[in-house]
Simulated assay, not measured.
Amino acid sequence: MTYVRMPAREALPVRIRAKGLLAALLATVMLSGCGVVNKMIYKTTGDVMQGFSRNHTVPYLMANDDLAMGCAMSEATAPLLMSFGRVTSEPDQLAVMLYLSAGGCAEELAREHGLAALAAMHAMNGNAAEDAMIRQQRAYALAAERYFSAWKHHNAHYGEPGTGECPDFDDDMDEFIYFAGLLSGLQALNAEIQSTSAIGVPKNVGSVVARATSCLDNDKWWGAPMALRATVWAMIPGAQPQGEDAFERLDIADEQGEAAGVRLSHVFHAIAATNKGRSDLVRSVIREHAESLEQMPSNDQWQFVDAMATNMIVAISDRLWVEHTGHRTPMGQLGTFWDDQPENVETMSLDGLL
C-alpha cells in the first residue's frame, strides 16, 4: 500500500487567515483613506504651498507694480491657502499679506464710492450722493474686517506687539511682513471709523503700532517705520513725546523714501496733514511725490509698495479735484491743481516789426 503525505491540517487555515487579515487591513486603509490623506498628502501639500508662497510668491509680487493683479490674486487665493490651516499649522504669516492686500481691494472700492458721492454732491444730486455714501460705508466695513483679520494673524505669529519685546526675524521678508502687520492694524482702525460700524478693532491700536515700529530698522525700510510712528503722534492727542516734532520727522522720512525709491512715507505725511486740516501741506506732499517719480525710479525689489504709495497719493489728489471741480485728477497731471496759476511767459510785441 502506498502512503501519500498530506499537508498539516493547520497549514492551510493559517495561509487563509493571513490573506484574510491582509484584505481586512487593505479595506481599513481604503475606508479610512480620508484620514490618511489628510495627515499625509494634504498636510505635505499645505506645507509646500505655505513655504512657496512665503518664499517666492510674495517676493515676486513685491517686485511687480501691477496693483490690480495683486488685488485679484489675494482675493482669489486667500480661501484656498488659508484652508490648509485645517490640515497643517495655521498659515498666520502668509495670512497677514493675504488679508492686508484683500483689505486694500475693499478700501479701493470704498474710495471709488466716495468719489462718486462727491461728484454727485458737486452735481447737486442728493439721492445719488447718499446712495454712494452708503456703498462706501459697506466697503469700508469689509475692508476693516479684512485688515483686522491680518492684524490678528500678525499677533498670532509674532506675539502681542508694543510690549517692549521684539521678535527674532529670520530674514528681510520676515521683517517686512511684521511691518505689513502693523500697517494692517492701523488700517483696520481707520476703516472701522470710516464705516461708522463696530468691527471690534481695539481703540489703542494706533499707540500699540507706534511703539512696535521701534523693532524695525528705519533706514533699512525707507523711513516708513518712523513715518508711521510720527503719523500716530500727529493724529492722537498727547501721543507725541516731549521734544519731538511729528512733521519734522515726516520730512526726514520723505527724504529717505525718495532716495530709496519707495515713497510710502508720502502717504503717511499726507494723512497726517489731512488730519490736521493743513490742505496746503497736503498739496505740497502730492507735488513732491509727483516730482520724485520723475527723478527716481521705483526700487526694483519693492515696486509693489511704491506703486501702492502712488495709488494712495492719486486717491488723495482725486478727492481734492472732485471736491472742487467734479472730476478726478487729469491724466498726466498728478502734482498740479485746478487753481494753479499759469507760468509767466515772456512775450514780445510784434507791432514794431510789422
Rank of each mutant, 00 (worst) to 15 (best):
P7N: 01
P7Y: 01
R9Y: 04
A11E: 05
V14Q: 03
K19M: 15
K19T: 13
K19R: 12
L21C: 13
L26H: 08
T28M: 14
C34I: 14
N38K: 09
K43E: 08
N55V: 14
V58Q: 03
M69L: 14
L80E: 09
L81E: 10
T88L: 08
Q93W: 02
L94M: 03
Y99A: 12
E112A: 13
H113N: 03
L115S: 09
A117M: 10
L118E: 14
A128R: 15
A128E: 15
A129D: 04
E130N: 11
Q136K: 15
Q137C: 11
Y140L: 07
W151K: 05
K152N: 00
E160C: 08
G164K: 09
E165A: 03
C166T: 09
P167W: 00
D168Y: 11
D170F: 13
D171R: 06
M173Q: 14
I177H: 08
A180K: 02
G181K: 07
L183F: 14
I193Q: 04
I193M: 12
Q194W: 07
Q194G: 13
I199C: 02
P202G: 12
G206Q: 00
V209N: 05
A210F: 03
A210L: 01
A210I: 04
A212P: 03
C215K: 03
G223M: 01
A224L: 04
P225N: 04
M226T: 09
A234F: 11
M235F: 01
M235C: 01
I236D: 10
A239F: 06
P241E: 01
E244D: 09
D245V: 02
R263E: 00
R263L: 01
H266F: 07
V267A: 02
A273S: 13
T274V: 06
N275R: 11
D280E: 06
D300Y: 09
F304C: 02
A307S: 05
M312S: 10
V314K: 05
R319G: 08
E323T: 08
R328Q: 06
R328G: 09
T329M: 05
G332K: 03
F337Y: 03
W338D: 04
D339A: 12
D339P: 13
D340L: 12
E343G: 15
E346K: 13
M348E: 06
M348S: 10
L354T: 15
